[in-house]
């Protein structure tokens, strides 16, 4: 009986110790906000490479399947992609020609030469487990030249977020535009209304500080970056307005649905240099 009670007491002592350690960890973290303390950095440095490895193995198995077993399905997809590529090439040619009216061919070539080396294709290796609308982890880090505040786009060129910080040599955390704790300079397409866009933490964004008296704000309008925050280049598509409400305060309540989709973010593009002038 005494032995059983002693064991039980020992268990509660261990539990209290574990809770105490974690309360200390929380109290160390809270003043730092989104910055990680050394303990979190250490655990991240241990877990993200494992997640990276698992992700690479699963991608490898998926790729093996794609290459050897599903040729039948891929043939049709390949034909569609070839058609699309053909159209895109035409579009590219058309746009280049249109651009020539504004810039010399040499200037355009120089711009393109500057663009491609600064686009880094990355893969997503993990979502945020506490709230997937806040952040995600990609498979490139300091070794690949990833730095804080680099711009992250999806495969269609829509804004996804920015690099919050590299987690290790080969992994980095991306802060999504749907996160509540930051803002992006944004404007509507074809208008002079400037506001600040921040996430609502549930997959949508709020466009803030647009006056109630502002005209030309309609449902379905496209929201693009304004470039005023000096982090994002101008004119990157963000999303569409899905809700506009007048409020009793000074500003409208505007909801924006981002263009990027979680299902399509397997591969992303990081702009590794300052390309504000290019956009």
């Amino acid at each position: 009986m005494n032995e059983h009670s002693g064991k039980k007491n020992k268990a509660f002592v261990v539990l209290s110790l574990l809770l105490f350690i974690q309360i200390i960890l929380i109290s160390l973290q809270v003043p730092l906000g989104d910055e990680s303390n050394y303990f979190k950095k250490t655990v991240s440095a241990l877990t993200t490479p494992v997640k990276h490895g698992v992700s690479a193995i699963i991608r490898g198995v998926g790729s093996f399947w794609d290459h050897y077993f599903s040729f039948r399905f891929r043939t049709r997809e390949y034909a569609l992609i070839s058609d699309r590529l053909l159209l895109l090439k035409q579009e590219n040619l058309f746009l280049k020609n249109r651009l020539k009216k504004f810039e010399s061919e040499e200037e355009i070539r120089e711009s393109l030469l500057h663009l491609y080396p600064n686009l880094l294709i990355v893969r997503v290796i993990g979502l945020d487990l506490n709230n997937s609308f806040r952040s995600l982890i990609i498979d490139r880090g300091t070794l690949d030249g990833i730095r804080k505040d680099m711009v992250v786009l999806d495969k269609n060129g829509y804004l996804v977020g920015r690099i919050l910080r590299p987690l290790s040599f080969k992994e980095s955390r991306v802060q999504l535009i749907t996160d509540t704790e930051w803002g992006i300079g944004a404007t509507t397409e074809n208008s002079d209304m400037f506001g600040i866009l921040s996430g609502d933490g549930e997959g949508r964004c709020d466009l803030k500080y647009i006056l109630n008296t502002a005209p030309d704000i309609e449902l379905g309008q496209m929201i693009i970056t304004s470039g005023q925050d000096e982090v994002f280049p101008k004119n990157i598509p963000i999303g569409r307005i899905t809700q506009v409400d007048q409020t009793e305060m000074l500003h409208k309540r505007i909801k924006v649905l981002p263009f990027f989709r979680f299902r399509d973010i397997g591969r992303l593009v990081v702009i590794t240099d300052d390309l504000k002038d290019f956009y």
């Binding site: 960890l25 929380i26 973290q29 991240s44 993200t48 993990g126 487990l129 806040r134």
Partner: peptide, 16 residues
């Protein structure tokens, strides 16, 4: 703590 390390929130909340 692993869950917290893979998230942006405060380190230790999921741990407790």
């Amino acid at each position: 703590l692993i869950q917290d390390s893979l998230s942006m929130g405060v380190f230790g909340v999921s741990g407790i």
